[in-house]
Design a binder for these strands. Structure first.
Length: 439
DNA sequence: TCTGGGGTCCTAGGACCC
DNA sequence: TCTGGGGTCCTAGGACCC
């Protein structure tokens, strides 16, 4: 078999006899298994070997015992209970998740500085420069897994391959608690029989379209011409999928650049549309988003509001301002006008289920002061109906925001804020979860 | 009885400029 | 004298990822 596949127990004598041929495979993809659920089982031994889910209204993570019943992340809580009567829901220790994730990443850094953290529970490592110190990539992968298991107590799956995409596919196939090394000489044999869903960028919609075209495996996808894929999925998606299925991936392991947007959202349940609800929710969201922008010393020109109605139908309205903003009240005002416009255009909708505010078109904050005044008359025509931020007002607000930020840094979020910045009962999501998701 | 929060990237049409 | 093409920016919606 071209693919070397070890489960859990890897002994180094086996390794040294197999690893020399895989010299080109120096990328590791490391992925913690059922991360939140594994942490909960680690913290509370009575939960081990039992089907558990982290979350409530929606499943954030399911243990492998729960997955055997079909319980999956993202699933509504009631559906999960339907599938598994014994399912235990456990409250999320979100701060602990962050701590455990950080500890795992620090183990990675003991082997190589080339670590690209993709999310709280997942990272790419380039170990090309580490082989002289620590041995072949497969040995490094085994050592990383062992240390994470012994020192932290969490199961980690690792894929080792020549490219990021292959490494990621390998780690998915290795789960749970496994290690797969893909020999560069036998990559096609590894990829061809796998389902298309394992390719990055193939979600439910793309999978369905490809199935309808009779394409089920990565091998079949690779045989399909790029023109056909483009006509099926669009130019960019078709080209990307064509490349990945043909095993072409030139991405390197690197630390991510600055973020391109900052946003926040609040699910509301089903609520009647009222001015108070809109004002209160946008106040809360605007406060969060603007605060995070200022903390990152960023400001943004484009404000986008999303309103989701019943049956998950959602509508967005956005507006690009002549200058970048990061002041709380200005963001709230712009968001409020956008939300009103979205709701007015959908008056037959009785209830809303979610509001979201996001700022994009970001730039470093220092340019804010330079580009004043804001009350220029050459606004794009489509924004004519929006009230424009005025320079002197903006400068004053910016000063107030900075003072609020400083007080919060010292005494916590709740210490001070605008009257509108508190979300009443509707917010069932703990603050720690939002902080966790911000990462 | 439809379910969280945080993101990225792509598309298509229209406005506008040269 | 109302015809061409290319590029950029903006808006709305959608697919996808963790």
């Amino acid at each position: 078999m071209a693919v070397v596949h070890w489960k859990t127990n890897v002994c180094s004598t086996t390794l040294s006899s197999v690893t020399p041929p895989v010299s080109g495979a120096t990328i590791l993809h490391a992925d913690l298994d059922a991360f939140y659920a594994s942490v909960e089982q680690l913290l509370d031994p009575s939960l081990r070997d039992r089907p558990i889910a982290v979350g409530g209204g929606v499943v954030l993570a399911a243990s492998y015992e729960a997955r055997r019943f079909g319980v999956r992340a993202g699933m509504p809580g009631w559906r999960a209970r339907q599938l598994c009567g014994d399912l235990r829901f456990v409250g999320g220790h979100f701060r602990r998740y962050q701590q455990f994730g950080d500890e795992v990443v620090s183990v990675f850094h003991d082997f190589t500085p080339r670590v690209e953290r993709v999310s709280i529970d997942e990272a790419f490592l380039d170990v090309a420069g580490a082989v002289h110190l620590f041995g072949a990539p497969a040995e490094i992968a085994a050592a990383v897994r062992q240390r994470v298991r012994e020192e932290i107590g969490l199961p980690l799956s690792v894929g080792v391959a020549r490219t990021k995409h292959l490494a990621k596919v390998a780690s998915q196939v290795a789960k749970p608690d496994g290690l797969i090394v893909v020999d560069p000489a036998h990559e096609r044999a590894f990829l061809d029989p796998l389902p298309i869903r394992l390719i990055r960028g193939v979600g439910p919609t793309t999978e369905r379209r490809l199935h309808e075209a009779g394409i089920h495996t990565i091998g079949q996808l690779a045989e399909t011409g790029s023109p056909i894929l483009r006509s099926l999925l669009g130019d960019a998606a078709g080209a990307k999928l064509g490349a990945l299925s043909a095993n072409i991936d030139t991405r390197i392991v690197q630390t991510p650049g600055p973020s391109k947007s900052v946003g926040s959202q609040a699910a509301l349940g089903r609520r009647q549309v009222t001015r108070e609800l809109i004002r209160e929710t946008l106040g809360y969201l605007g406060d969060r988003v603007a605060g995070r922008l200022r903390k990152a010393h960023m400001a943004g020109r484009t404000v986008t509001v999303r309103v989701r109605f019943a049956q998950l139908r959602s509508v967005t309205r956005s507006s690009t301002l002549p200058v970048a903003i990061s002041t709380t009240l200005t963001l709230i005002e712009v968001a409020d006008q956008l939300a009103r416009s979205a709701i007015a255009d959908n008056q037959w909708e009785q209830e809303i289920t979610l509001l979201a505010v996001s700022v994009s078109n970001l730039c470093p904050e220092h340019s804010l002061q330079l580009e004043l005044p804001l009350d220029r008359t050459d606004l794009p025509r489509t924004q004519g109906h929006l009230r424009r931020p005025r320079a002197e007002v903006e400068v004053g607000r910016w000063g107030v925001d900075r003072s609020v930020d400083a007080i919060r840094d010292k005494f916590g979020r709740a210490a001070v804020g605008y009257a509108t910045s508190v979300l009443s009962g509707a917010d069932r999501v703990p603050e720690e979860f939002r902080e966790l998701a911000e990462r």
